[in-house]
């Protein structure tokens, strides 16, 4: 059982908010990961800052795991990061479950033009009606999916 601690959750959230604030006030860009990721695909325009952002995101995760070890998952002293497997008794192989989840996340975020960061953080902060609708739907559907599939055992 994971222990809930509001302190790292809030501090991490403030950092994510700060990251979004820096990109908006500095470059006038939305820190939406699916948008940044999607624009790396051809015909990719303005891809240099996007590649740098993604590399820095991975580096920032690795670096913080070294500086603040053992917080939870990842890095030295932390539990190993593990992806979930398909619900028990479903007979679906884990690789298929994860691949399908990736595919749906990819198609879905490009159709909706945003994900948890672009709609969830930036869009809500901008009071965008599209983001309120999107966030309401993907949270509700995700909660339903977890509840109905019993993927958390």
């Amino acid at each position: 059982m994971n222990s809930f601690n509001p302190l790292p959750a809030t501090l991490g959230g403030l950092l994510i908010g700060l990251a979004s604030a820096v990109l908006w006030l500095g470059n006038g860009r939305i820190a939406g990961i699916s948008g940044i990721f999607g624009h790396l695909l051809p015909p990719g325009r303005d891809w240099t800052w996007r590649v740098l952002f993604v590399l820095a995101l991975v580096g920032g995760t690795a670096l913080t795991a070294l500086l603040v070890p053992g917080l939870g998952v990842g890095g030295p002293g932390g539990a190993p990061a593990v992806l979930v497997s398909a619900p028990q008794g479903s007979g679906v192989p884990g690789w298929l479950w994860i691949s399908l989840a990736g595919l749906l996340t990819g198609v879905g975020t490009q159709l909706a033009n945003g994900c948890t960061s672009g709609h969830g953080v930036c869009g809500i902060a901008r009071l965008s009606m599209r983001s309120f609708v999107s966030v309401g739907i993907f949270f509700a559907v995700a909660i339903l999916t977890v509840t109905l599939t019993g993927v958390v055992s």
Binding site: L14, V22, G60, L63
Partner: peptide, 15 residues
């Protein structure tokens, strides 16, 4: 972009 990405990655690990 570099600073924002670093902060974002740090936030995802800390949280």
């Amino acid at each position: 972009a570099l600073i924002s990405g670093l902060l974002f990655g740090a936030g995802l690990y800390i949280s």
